[in-house]
Design a protein around this nucleic acid. Sequence first.
DNA 1: CTGCAACTTCAAGTCGACTTGAAGTCAAGG
DNA 2: CCTTGACTTCAAGTCGACTTGAAGTTGCAG
Lengths: 146, 146
Amino acid sequence: MDISEVAERTGLPPSTLRYYEEKGLIVSVGRRGLHRLFDGSVLERLALIALGRAAGFSLDEIKRMFAPDGRPRIDRAKLAAKAEEVDRRIRELGALRDGLRHAAACPAPSHLECPTFRRLLRAAAHGVVKAPRKGGPRAVKASAPR
Amino acid sequence: MDISEVAERTGLPPSTLRYYEEKGLIVSVGRRGLHRLFDGSVLERLALIALGRAAGFSLDEIKRMFAPDGRPRIDRAKLAAKAEEVDRRIRELGALRDGLRHAAACPAPSHLECPTFRRLLRAAAHGVVKAPRKGGPRAVKASAPR
DNA sequence: CTGCAACTTCAAGTCGACTTGAAGTCAAGG
DNA sequence: CCTTGACTTCAAGTCGACTTGAAGTTGCAG
């Protein structure tokens, strides 16, 4: 498989694949001339990477989840911890969604006069606005699948 | 109130407050010498901004939610749309959490041999569960809305 | 009146995950 | 053989929300 086939089958642009290789997240099995060659296993690897990203791991963290030989060494405790983290996030977002819905439907003339909105406001003001960089789900620019 | 008092009462560093003023998100009521002076209303304004950030709006979007006179003009349709967006994300994260939990508890010798994990992997590969977007919703203290 | 912590401005730097552009190489179809 | 378009490398740019640093000013305790 050349890079464009991998790109096509994963929806990732070639630039991302080169970037991932440069970072050591994937490996090419060789070259045909200058052109990289990949084998099928890279697809599974990329699926694992996609999963890690979805779970909120950084590329560096994901990299550490692969043994030097390329086999995934996924720590069950780490998965459980991430599941808990995701669960906490779900509950936060649930509160946020409910607040937004109420505010959207609220009949008060101004949101500032709506008690529910004011409560939401207070929660936000005191809410933990932690840097997304730290422990939380990572931000990623959503690139359109091709 | 000088900038450090606002900083103290909101938990935001002075640099952020200056940045917000520069962006036109907040206004100072005057100066004492060079030093900015704020009045109490800035606290409510900053709470609104915090809420907007928590809901996943960008600073530019938030800015547009204030009328030139400073009063919030919150678009109910926009709130409802954001609520839907948050809700969708919640459902994605729910699937992710369940998958992670299963994988953490799965007795298969390797995750790659676990059917549930493989299913999760496929979902991630096809973008069913996506990595959180840049500027996505931030954490807010969860509390039961009423 | 003096010292200095705390403020000020402005430019530039940071962070992660990529993308883009320039310039060069090359495999394969005609 | 020649063209061409897909590949290559490497450096630099992008995005958002700030932070940091340098250099200068100032309110106020002592």
